[in-house]
Nucleic acid binder design. Sequence first.
DNA 1: AGTCTTGCATTTAATTATTTAATACACAAA
DNA 2: TTTGTGTATTAAATAATTAAATGCAAGACT
Lengths: 300, 300
Amino acid sequence: MARSDTRYREAYNQILAFCEPLPAAAPIPSETRLAEIAGVSRTVIRRCLARMEELGLISWQGRDKRLLRTPQAEDRIAVPDSPSDRSDLEQRFLDWVLRFDVPANTPLSVAELSRTFDVPQHDLKEFLAGLSRFGLVSRRPQGGWMLLGFTKDFAIELSDFRSVLELNAVTHVADAPVDHPVWAALAQLRRDHLSLKDAIDTDFHEFSKLDERFHLAINSVVKNRFIAEFQKVISLIFHYHYMWDKTEEKVRNAAAIDEHIAIIDALEARDAEAAQAAALRHLRTSRTTLLSSLRHHHLG
Amino acid sequence: MARSDTRYREAYNQILAFCEPLPAAAPIPSETRLAEIAGVSRTVIRRCLARMEELGLISWQGRDKRLLRTPQAEDRIAVPDSPSDRSDLEQRFLDWVLRFDVPANTPLSVAELSRTFDVPQHDLKEFLAGLSRFGLVSRRPQGGWMLLGFTKDFAIELSDFRSVLELNAVTHVADAPVDHPVWAALAQLRRDHLSLKDAIDTDFHEFSKLDERFHLAINSVVKNRFIAEFQKVISLIFHYHYMWDKTEEKVRNAAAIDEHIAIIDALEARDAEAAQAAALRHLRTSRTTLLSSLRHHHLG
DNA sequence: AGTCTTGCATTTAATTATTTAATACACAAA
DNA sequence: TTTGTGTATTAAATAATTAAATGCAAGACT
């Protein structure tokens, strides 16, 4: 019942690695120095040194520390595995929600989620607390959490918000200097759109990826931490729903390609107003798709 | 070392209150029913009933539960106080940050904050996790949290984002139906602005409140959970900074009043474009004020 | 029969205790 | 004066623990 000593174990191996190239009887740097090297506190370093002394790797009296023998591979200490990085917990969680079509107002059990995602409960709680800021989950009065998302209202509000952000981004792109990387990206995107359009009969399912790339390119021009945070969630949600609604997928994607190209046209002509109008048209289509995808999903 | 039994204690008193008006020897509803009444699980209700039986308040055999005597005030069980509701933790935290001018990149100690705010550490962690979504705080590699906010970049990005949201709101207002409550609010705001303008020499510090009311009215037209969440934070930050920058406060406020009235004029004329332009002018001023407030604060 | 109720067992969640780690400070050595 | 170490204090992460919620089956009442 205490925190893990992973930090100590990793630091220990790091210090060993640092000592390996040193000649025999070499002096060992100060605790503060070693702490810097391993990126931990002096407390951890002292634990490492104590162990190294105990195993006869070093001598240690006061500030005189010397290497007695070169550390070997077998001197290393075992580190408990599975960092199972929590950075992509968000991706995996949304993936889970969308893929299994978890309905709105589902109670979320931290214990269960912690098992399915192989993440400490603690991390999960923090993650859910973060999501609650986006209105995706909320606390239940009797404890625990509950998934709110993916009602019709949610989809509408999300779409509206996306439109606001995206129209803003389009304006920014139109104002971007000629040497901005977005122009090269758009030129490439235009080519990719045109080639996909030629092969639309067979490759129409490739559009989803292209769509993501397109919107990412547009939004990358806006450098804003608040907007960026939202975009991550938004694009993921739209991405999945886009892939799901299989009704008339081919026709829809072909139409979307044209809409994208219309936006690119207006942007390259530096016509901000036309670009806004084109973007608005596209966003309306997108919104309709999202809503109908939701409807089909809930009926079937 | 376990969770508190506040839930049980509160439920107990609630059940007592429920029993009070009942006549002597009255039958007590089913556990499920009582659970509904108190808003807790059956487990808690059974604990309550057990205590009531023990104290001779009721008889309880199988499903036959009867009131033996009317509960008195002294039968109530003590509830550990301090609801210290965490709903306004956000308000208090931002207030603390802004009022004490906590500088950017300050390490935040959960233990310390937990003491100053009289909130369990656990709640604070959740809260901070939520704020990290807004880029206001972030996790430190060596553990704990750190306050990021209120650098120049932060202020600029916040201002930009605010502008995006606010311009969107203005457009919505211009499209609002005639019977929408916003029009009454704006009419009242116009009167209040004009009367403050007359008394600007003495009451100029009253503007801060008026400013908040004005922006709230505009933004209330947009019904969007994402936007609403952000607005809370944004308005608080701008509110404080506005109050701080004492340089030429009177002149600034007088100018802002005119800017507000210009927006109201355009809105009441249902001229969306003019309203946008007026709002943009005002937002630019606001942004300048925020930045200069920041500059003065950091220098002095 | 069918619904409602309870008894019991299992699972989950909130909170604290405990251990690991970070930090602060004083003093000693270079 | 700077740098390093010894020691003490404080904080953070996590598992242990208890409170509470939930699930299921059998019994009671209509």
